[in-house]
Write a protein that binds this DNA or RNA. Structure first.
Length: 568
RNA sequence: UGGGGAAUCGUCUAAUGGAAGGACAACGGACUCUGACUCCGUUUAUCUAGGUUCGAAUCCUAGUUCCCCAGCCA
């Protein structure tokens, strides 16, 4: 086998395998057509990102098509705001649905006619039982259900009643249309599932045209069939629904896609259920759906995560039927990996400490050349001003340093990145004894950062020139929850315990930072590395007077880890 | 106590009867004008018990654990 000519093959996860096999046998006439079918009742999160990337990725890989389809079958819950947000998120991920933006509600007429077909075949009936009665008649997990007294109405009567349901003659909840399947089935989904309910409310796209709205199980296969979907990918909890998906399509005798279930992506240190995400937003625990601490796509985008990183993560964790929890560290790592390659570097000081160079010529300023991205020579260089009054990071100075502290301390010499070697000669303290200024001297021979005498220093510090630095607000984020599985109650949980008790009280810290002047022209959405600190992204809250940054993710910090070990 | 799924390093994932491999994490080291990146090395796994086989993560039998299902939500 040749070595270099063979690109690394993508892992043959089971869905890729099924599709590859179908392509080989020509099962769908050489077609692959997938879809992402969100309900517009909330924002998309990282779990949806997996589904989007999987669906679009398979279509793309096999030369097929991908649809975005809103499953807007429940007007009571759905809103245009969510439609708009979802479209933006799907596009941002790079999932190109071209002109195939669809709405389930556009198929309501066709579904209605198909329902009449089932009625005429004696496979569906109108039931007058109340919701409670239906539940009671359904039986339990271990006992079969009983037939509704209305189960054997004639097709003619059912047709009349169903048409009058749609005509608005009956109140909400008074009747439903049910499929006539098997009240004794061990699969509860097959015990005469409801196909339509009366909901005399306006639909966000259809207005008042409909008084009956289809249920998921009835609608979904129809939608897939109408669009010519070949592989209908969904999550594990729909496995129990597959027999019903198949039953409806078989009864109708229409195009019948294959439903395939996979395990959804779950992340540690966060929650992903729509209900809980809503609660975080509307309970004001976060600033909104796009709060950078949220696992929503909008939140991740605002925080500075990239689509490439999300794609890499999804490819790395694979696609299986095993329910698993992905360590959020893997996501962060994927983000670092991508940003390391593409993010320009700048210097910024998050917690400024004044450093005065005592032997620096009064008023003198030098422009120093700094590399924009060592991983990408084509990114070039920039000039950064250096002077005798600087800011360095507070944590880069210690008056009484521990062993292996390579940074500045009295008598120690360090390099200021791209600038000069500096030796600490003293400190200035305030009345409380806190160090408020560090004094030092520089070695003029080390301009650019190299000592001609071959002398080495262990530490290199980032810095900004005080007179030239710009101020910025920087938002530092920590995990929203302090527990890897925030929904899991502790052993001694009080009765009123909820996952909100695991909210991390210090997930947000805001600091005033000093940044090198080249950053002044940055625009919202711009991403960059602050050297030695992490990756940062300009936030939309920025004003002409003040840039606001979100810390996307820190750099790996083995020194911090070392210290944590010492502290423990 | 019905039905449907799933069990492989700490985590995620390969293997399709023929040497249990990779990624992340952890640990140790090299390199370094970012304690970053990169590179090298180390530790750690087939749910259990039987069986078939020259050979089992894979096949068979019995069991165990976990997840999903009793919405007029999707």
């Amino acid at each position: 086998m040749s070595d270099s000519a063979t690109p690394p093959a993508k892992p043959m996860h089971f869905i890729r395998q099924i599709i590859a096999e179908d392509m080989k046998t020509g099962r769908w006439g050489g077609r692959v057509h997938t879809r992402f079918p969100p309900e517009p009742n909330g924002y998309l999160h990282v779990g949806h990102a997996k589904s989007i990337i999987l669906n679009y990725g398979m279509a793309k890989e096999f030369g097929g098509k991908f649809n975005l389809r809103f499953d807007d079958t429940n007007p009571a819950k759905e809103e245009q705001e969510y439609v708009d947000a979802i479209i933006e998120d799907v596009r941002w991920l790079g999932a190109d649905f071209e002109d195939r933006l669809f709405y389930a509600s556009d198929y309501f007429q066709q579904m209605y006619e198909w329902a009449l077909v089932l009625i005429d075949k004696g496979k569906a009936y109108v039931d007058d039982l109340t919701a409670d009665q239906i539940r009671e008649y359904r039986g339990t997990l271990t006992e079969p259900g009983r037939p509704s007294p209305y189960r054997d109405r004639s097709p003619a009567e059912n047709r009349d009643l169903f048409e009058r349901m749609q005509a608005g003659e009956f109140p909400d909840g008074s009747r439903v249309l049910r499929a006539k399947i098997d009240m004794a089935s061990p699969n509860l989904n097959l015990r005469d599932p409801v196909m339509y309910r009366i909901l005399r409310v306006p639909h966000h796209r259809q207005g008042r045209k409909w008084n009956v709205y289809p249920m998921y199980d009835w609608a979904h296969g129809n939608e897939d069939s109408i669009e010519g979907i070949t592989h209908s990918l969904c999550t594990l909890e729909f496995e129990n629904h597959r027999p019903l998906y198949d039953w409806f399509l078989d009864q109708l005798g229409i195009h019948h896609p294959q439903q395939i279930e996979f395990a959804k992506l779950v992340l540690s240190y966060t929650v992903l259920s729509k209900r809980k995400l809503r609660e975080l937003v509307f309970g004001r625990y976060v600033s909104g759906w796009d709060d950078p601490r949220m696992p929503t796509i909008a939140g991740m985008r605002r925080r500075g995560y990239t689509p490439e990183a999300l794609w890499a993560l999804v490819e790395e964790v694979g696609v299986t039927k095993v329910e698993s929890v992905i360590d959020v560290g893997r996501l962060e790592n994927a983000v670092r990996n991508h940003l390391n390659r593409v993010a320009p570097r700048v210097m910024g000081v998050l917690r400024p400490l004044k450093l005065t160079i005592e032997n620096w010529p009064e008023g003198h300023v030098e422009m120093l050349e700094c590399v924009n991205n060592p991983e990408d020579p084509s990114a070039g260089t920039r000039q950064v001003p250096f002077s005798g009054t600087l800011y360095i990071e507070q944590e880069d100075f210690m008056e009484n340093p521990p062993k292996k502290f390579f940074r500045l301390s009295p008598g120690a010499e360090v390099r200021l990145r791209y600038a000069y070697f500096v030796k600490c000669t003293g400190v200035v303290k305030d009345a409380s004894g806190k160090v408020i200024e560090v004094k030092g001297t520089y070695d003029p021979a080390t301009r650019g950062g190299d000592a001609p005498d071959g002398r080495k220093v262990k530490g290199t510090l980032h810095w900004v020139s005080a007179a030239h630095a710009i101020d910025a607000e920087v938002r530092l984020f920590d995990r929203l929850f302090s527990h890897p599985e925030p929904e899991k109650p502790p052993k001694d949980a009080p009765p009123d315990w909820t996952y909100l008790h695991n909210l991390n009280p210090s997930s947000l810290e805001v600091v005033r930072a000093k940044l090198e002047p080249s950053v002044a022209s940055a625009k919202p959405g711009d991403r960059m590395q602050f050297e030695r600190l992490g990756y940062f992204c300009v936030d939309k809250d920025s004003t002409p007077d003040l840039l606001v940054f979100n810390r996307t993710v820190t750099l790996k910090d083995t020194w911090a880890k070392e210290q944590a070990k010492g502290a423990a």
